[in-house]
Amino acid sequence: MDSTSVALNFIELNPERSNTIILLHDLTGSLLEWEQVQASLVDYHLLIPDLPRHSGSRKVRPLTIRHAAAACARLIRDHAHGSQAFAVGISMGGFVALEVAHSYPDLVRAIFISGTYDMKRAFPKGMYALPWVSAFIRHFVPSRVDQEQHRKKGIMWSRAFTRDARANSRLSIVQQGAREIRHFDLSRLVVRQKTLAVAATRMDSVNEVAALVGVLKQGNVESTGAYVEDAEHQWNLQRPELFAAGIQAWFEHRDLPEEFRHLTTVETGE
């Protein structure tokens, strides 16, 4: 099934609010990944989908960034107020958000992404797939062990999301998703929307996020980058209130929380 013709599974929250945000989860995640963040975004109309082959969208195929972007574009057209949305994405969801903005520019107002950068350059040769190898291993680890390992990192998630993440950690999904990220050419993007790219320092590459910012600035000089110290790659689950505060500040043209350290002109190579 082509994701352009089969609708994504999604939830809609706060429909009475004027401005829409679409929240896009990472590889092997699901819409339940945003439960803690969405609680702090009550002033926004929220669209939160499962991406292709994940959870409630498992029958939507194939799992490619471009097809996921097409499906998200359809969701925005059909359900966002004024057929426009602010886009938020983490990891693979960030790639999808950028592709929506690039391919369907009239649908996206501004962008907030985290953990999205060139994995091939950030990791030693042949090692870029390590994050997703661990995701696949999760499929075989007892759920209580999985939860405890993440709890030690400060990452808290519900039992329902644990079930989703384990079910979505099948080898075929992990392989396809990692392949998509490996071959996605960030340098080709023309993104006219103001974009904030964030690095979580416990895993993400600050230098690669800075390189991405250089690309984004070619489309909009207001695009910029930041990093958050002691944040895990999935810091939307580790520090959800801060994650939500950053989203709100960026989209509302306010100063970012002090925990967001600006990437300086030296780091971005400007």
Score class of each variant (00 low, 15 high):
residue 1 M to G: 15
residue 3 S to H: 06
residue 4 T to E: 10
residue 8 L to E: 02
residue 13 L to R: 15
residue 15 P to R: 13
residue 17 R to P: 01
residue 18 S to R: 10
residue 20 T to A: 12
residue 22 I to H: 02
residue 23 L to Q: 15
residue 24 L to V: 03
residue 30 S to I: 05
residue 34 W to K: 12
residue 38 Q to I: 01
residue 39 A to M: 14
residue 44 Y to D: 00
residue 49 P to C: 06
residue 49 P to H: 09
residue 50 D to I: 04
residue 61 R to D: 15
residue 68 A to E: 15
residue 72 C to T: 12
residue 74 R to W: 05
residue 75 L to F: 09
residue 76 I to V: 09
residue 77 R to A: 08
residue 79 H to D: 03
residue 80 A to H: 02
residue 83 S to D: 14
residue 84 Q to C: 10
residue 88 V to E: 07
residue 91 S to V: 03
residue 93 G to M: 00
residue 94 G to R: 13
residue 96 V to K: 11
residue 98 L to N: 14
residue 100 V to C: 01
residue 100 V to D: 01
residue 107 L to K: 07
residue 109 R to V: 11
residue 111 I to K: 04
residue 111 I to F: 04
residue 117 Y to N: 01
residue 120 K to I: 04
residue 128 Y to G: 02
residue 129 A to P: 05
residue 136 F to E: 12
residue 137 I to K: 09
residue 137 I to G: 06
residue 143 S to V: 13
residue 143 S to R: 15
residue 143 S to K: 15
residue 144 R to L: 09
residue 149 Q to K: 08
residue 154 G to E: 12
residue 156 M to H: 12
residue 156 M to R: 13
residue 163 R to P: 07
residue 166 R to P: 01
residue 167 A to S: 15
residue 169 S to E: 12
residue 171 L to I: 13
residue 177 G to K: 09
residue 179 R to V: 00
residue 182 R to P: 05
residue 185 D to R: 12
residue 187 S to P: 01
residue 188 R to G: 00
residue 189 L to V: 01
residue 193 Q to K: 04
residue 196 L to D: 06
residue 201 T to F: 07
residue 204 D to G: 05
residue 205 S to F: 03
residue 205 S to Y: 00
residue 207 N to P: 08
residue 211 A to I: 05
residue 221 V to K: 14
residue 221 V to A: 11
residue 222 E to P: 02
residue 222 E to S: 07
residue 228 V to G: 11
residue 230 D to L: 03
residue 235 W to M: 03
residue 239 R to F: 03
residue 240 P to I: 05
residue 242 L to Q: 03
residue 243 F to E: 15
residue 244 A to V: 08
residue 244 A to I: 09
residue 246 G to T: 11
residue 249 A to I: 01
residue 251 F to S: 06
residue 257 P to D: 01
residue 259 E to Y: 03
residue 261 R to T: 13
residue 261 R to C: 11
residue 267 E to D: 05
residue 267 E to V: 04
